[in-house]
Simulated assay, not measured.
Amino acid sequence: MSQPLEELKYPIGKYDPSVEITNQQIQDWIAVIENFPQKLASAIEDLTDEQLKWAYRPNGWSIKQVVHHCADSHMNSFIRFKLALTEEQPTIKPYSEDRWAQQADYLDVSPDESLKIIEGVHARWTVLLKSLNDNQLNRTFMHPEHRKIFALEQVIGLYAWHCNHHLAHIEQAMNYNYRF
């Protein structure tokens, strides 16, 4: 392993929240979110059960765990969008991603089940995202773990990055095949 751990953890780099947010940028991010289910399904469609156990870095999640994490993370994000659109600056509920990744549904369930969730969530999420006007894009929620207020337009960028981040993890796992 010649790559530093930080590069293995963030193969496309960390999310840069300082990116200028334009209408075109938002549309580009929404397209990433819209196309993610198909790209993810393609990335794992021919993998064996053994390959699904490969991790993207030492002590990292397996490909199977990454897929299940994306389903859970994106469901949570969709709900956070709905909360921000229907309540005044709600405080969202964080969750322990690492602990979730150790549960039986991550370890013993086929990633195909999470692909179904991702397909449905992203279909609805994309419709919602495309419908947002400028006022709605500026709606916010409070993330207590980060002690920060997030505008929905920022979160769209974060989740476009999140999609590409985990697709890169899967590609990396296939190249390095660390055993889980």
Results as ranks from 00 to 15, higher is better:
1 M>R: 08
3 Q>S: 10
6 E>H: 10
7 E>V: 08
11 P>M: 08
11 P>T: 10
11 P>L: 10
14 K>C: 09
15 Y>P: 01
19 V>Q: 15
19 V>S: 09
20 E>V: 15
24 Q>Y: 02
25 Q>D: 02
25 Q>T: 11
27 Q>V: 04
27 Q>W: 07
28 D>I: 11
29 W>P: 06
31 A>D: 13
31 A>N: 14
34 E>F: 05
36 F>A: 03
39 K>I: 00
40 L>Y: 10
44 I>C: 02
45 E>Y: 09
46 D>N: 15
47 L>D: 09
52 L>S: 01
53 K>H: 11
54 W>F: 15
59 N>G: 12
60 G>R: 10
60 G>H: 05
65 Q>V: 09
73 S>N: 13
74 H>D: 14
75 M>K: 13
75 M>L: 14
77 S>H: 05
78 F>Q: 06
78 F>E: 07
78 F>M: 11
79 I>D: 07
81 F>W: 12
83 L>Q: 13
83 L>S: 09
85 L>S: 07
88 E>N: 13
89 Q>A: 00
94 P>N: 12
95 Y>C: 02
97 E>G: 09
97 E>Y: 09
97 E>M: 08
98 D>Y: 11
105 D>Q: 13
107 L>P: 01
107 L>C: 04
108 D>I: 03
108 D>N: 14
109 V>H: 05
109 V>C: 03
110 S>N: 09
110 S>F: 02
112 D>F: 05
115 L>T: 09
115 L>M: 08
115 L>V: 09
117 I>H: 07
120 G>Y: 04
122 H>T: 07
123 A>H: 10
127 V>T: 13
128 L>G: 05
128 L>N: 03
130 K>R: 15
132 L>V: 07
135 N>Q: 14
136 Q>Y: 04
139 R>G: 07
140 T>W: 00
141 F>V: 01
141 F>M: 04
143 H>G: 06
144 P>D: 06
144 P>N: 10
145 E>P: 02
146 H>G: 06
152 L>F: 03
152 L>W: 04
154 Q>F: 01
157 G>M: 06
159 Y>K: 06
161 W>Q: 03
162 H>W: 04
169 H>T: 07
169 H>Y: 13
172 Q>V: 00
172 Q>M: 05
175 N>G: 01
175 N>H: 03
176 Y>V: 10
177 N>H: 14
178 Y>L: 03
180 F>N: 14
